[in-house]
Design a protein around this nucleic acid. Structure first.
Length: 283
DNA sequence: ATGGGGGCCTGCCGGC
DNA sequence: TGCCGGCAGGCCCCCA
């Protein structure tokens, strides 16, 4: 799930359940995820009203009436399961507890949000709302790709002289915040750029073309996530999934979707991560 | 400073 | 059917 579009989809799914409402009680079933939970987290997440839910990169920020903000990161396998709440015309009953249900928030109206994370690469932390931006996990993040702080001149400056592959550069959250392995592969396909091309070797025109493509890929994925939410049929109340047709990601050995291309999609490993690309369309 | 690799965890899938 | 290796959308940290 968890690249920017998936996290945004989860945030939007949580909005009607949490925003403006009171978390009555939070139960914590594990000592921590990637890091230990902050002290007394269960208490600090009980009897507090949720003022709003924000997203920064792949993090969800829950602002609380206690002047604290809950930071949530889904890691690789984190899920937020909603139950006991009317969503459209569907009512989700509380399911039986599952393995890896680490944190359970029960709202005053009976709705329940369960954080389930098998691999425990996710994270939760609490900090003063006023200093949320200074949190170590947020402080060094680059601009939001869909925000005003991201554009051609910024990206050109960040890539200038860099000897790292463009794949790695776009994955580096200090350059821009929110892209993950899937969407970097998809962006580079649309841009016709081989993932191993050195970032510093891109022309200004290529960088200029990247900016709208990044926005386009993310926007489409958010739109797709939203549509899957409206199409809620599963009784388990699971959020964060959306079906999406990828052009290259996960398609090793399959034929390129470019009309008339006919080339097989290839997979290489860069910095330990799989990169999928069309050797014909991407140079 | 910069770039690359290891490691954290569990689950799943394909091959034998 | 069972076991084993490889792989997974995240990120921090250490090393050269």
């Amino acid at each position: 799930m968890p690249e920017l579009p998936e996290v945004e989809t989860v945030r939007r799914g949580l909005l009607p359940v949490m925003e403006g409402k009171v978390i009555a009680v939070t139960d914590v079933n594990f000592s921590g995820l990637r890091w230990p939970f902050p002290p007394r987290m269960a208490e600090r997440l009980s009897n507090v009203r949720v003022l709003g839910l924000r997203r920064r990169s792949k993090y969800i920020l829950v602002d609380l009436s206690s002047d604290e903000t809950l930071l949530i990161h889904l890691g690789m396998s984190g899920r937020m399961l909603i139950s006991g709440q009317m969503i459209g015309t569907f009512v989700h009953d509380h399911p039986a507890p599952q393995k890896h249900d680490h944190v359970v928030m029960t709202m005053e109206d009976g709705a329940r949000i369960t954080f389930n994370d098998a691999r425990r690469f996710g994270a939760m932390d609490l900090m003063a709302t006023a200093r949320a931006d200074a949190h170590p996990l947020l402080a060094d993040l680059g601009p939001e790709p869909l925000g005003n702080g991201f554009g051609e001149s910024y990206l050109a400056a960040r890539l200038n002289g860099r000897k790292t592959p463009i794949k790695s550069a776009l994955l580096d959250q200090r350059n821009l915040a929110g892209l993950g392995n899937i969407y970097v592969c998809e962006v580079l396909f649309r841009a016709g750029l081989h993932p191993a091309r050195l970032a510093g070797d891109l022309t200004r025109a290529q960088i200029a073309a990247l900016v709208p493509l990044i926005r386009e890929v993310l926007s489409e994925a958010i739109a797709a996530g939203g549509s899957s939410l409206r199409d809620y049929r599963q009784a388990d109340g699971e959020l964060g999934y959306f079906q999406h047709t990828f052009r290259v990601y996960g398609r090793e050995g399959e034929i390129c979707t470019t009309p008339g291309c006919g080339t097989s999609i290839e997979r290489i490993v860069q910095s330990g991560r799989s990169s999928f690309f069309c050797p014909q369309c991407q140079a």
